[in-house]
Design a protein around this nucleic acid. Sequence first.
DNA 1: ATCAAGTCTGAAACTTGTTCTAGATTAGCG
DNA 2: CGCTAATCTAGAACAAGTTTCAGACTTGAT
Lengths: 209, 209
Amino acid sequence: MPAEAKPDATARTSSSPLTERQEARRRRILHASAQLASRGGFDAVQMREVAESSQVALGTLYRYFPSKIHLLVATMQDQLEHMHGTLRKKPPQGETAAERVAETLMRAFRALQREPHLADAMVRALTFADRSVSPEVDQVSRQTTVIILDAMGQADPTPEQLSAVRVIEHTWHSALITWLSGRASIAQVKIDIETVCRLIDLTDPHQEP
Amino acid sequence: MPAEAKPDATARTSSSPLTERQEARRRRILHASAQLASRGGFDAVQMREVAESSQVALGTLYRYFPSKIHLLVATMQDQLEHMHGTLRKKPPQGETAAERVAETLMRAFRALQREPHLADAMVRALTFADRSVSPEVDQVSRQTTVIILDAMGQADPTPEQLSAVRVIEHTWHSALITWLSGRASIAQVKIDIETVCRLIDLTDPHQEP
DNA sequence: ATCAAGTCTGAAACTTGTTCTAGATTAGCG
DNA sequence: CGCTAATCTAGAACAAGTTTCAGACTTGAT
């Protein structure tokens, strides 16, 4: 029978829980990944370097994360959890749901700004991911949805509101990309976020009977 | 002095016009790129194959397009022009600007659906592009803007409308990605597009005095 | 027609993501 | 404690993007 359960692709969501040592390895890997990404972005996260930094053989790294993209998406999951925790502590002050969501997203945005290389690596991985990473990418998307719904303070959103939230996520991702690739300023991003957040008021049942 | 002007990265927008033979080479390359992409998507566009298919040395390919990403973004520019031409012929029928834009985008979407692998290759390249491809990506963005403004039938858009258009573009790109990676259905995309297009009516000066 | 400057070709080399293999190590079970 | 199945390690090998280089070819100017 198994010695340590297989960590494998589905580590996070499925089957056998990891050994303590395995959990430690996994954390070392994610830490190394984030650290290298913070330095030089996507390109600086080289699998051999990650393996060495986290004191793990290359083959093992690939057993935990079956590709560089998987690794970086997992890194994003990790960072998102962090961020959700942080954002939760200081709820946004806006009057309307739209204002609160915009405020929250801009706060998240400024957090990413502090580590632009890391943001670059994570977002590039996220949008470059193909079908084989869908479950993980979906998880990131769900996490983002939760953050936005939290900001709305809306426990039971209508289908229309969920559509609006999806569009907001689209805008958020894409705006992030245009900023990261230097094609839009922060001011521009702010305007885009605020613009799209208007959709929330538009679909707010309190305002549209 | 030069024999044939350098094609180089900036081929399209700048300096010296290309020789006939160079123009022919460029077209052969783009054609090969689109063909390979149509077959197997991003991964099937291998630089050695493109070079061979277009009867050009590898080094030459790299002189015309300094990276695979550049090549695929250029391929997208090419296809977009095509599409703009096609869309122009049959203007959308909707009553409101929002309807017309949504109709146009869905029409474009269905066109991409016919060559999903090609769409995959182009869109992945577009979102994966880093700063070194900014000018070309920007060109694609401008072309998209023109298509949307065309559909609105709005010759002189307000700044607010331009914001809405940018958000629509964000949504368009991101929705495309989620569809290509199998995380959203076509119906879902349609809803998202229609939802975001509501922003247009919201900012239409005729409706908001 | 000749020449200089720049371009194209063909092939090899280099880089980094990914796969594979043989042997050492570990975890849990009897 | 000793087995057994699985994991981990070190390192080689492979794949595709990118770079490099020497030599053949074009082009435009003289």
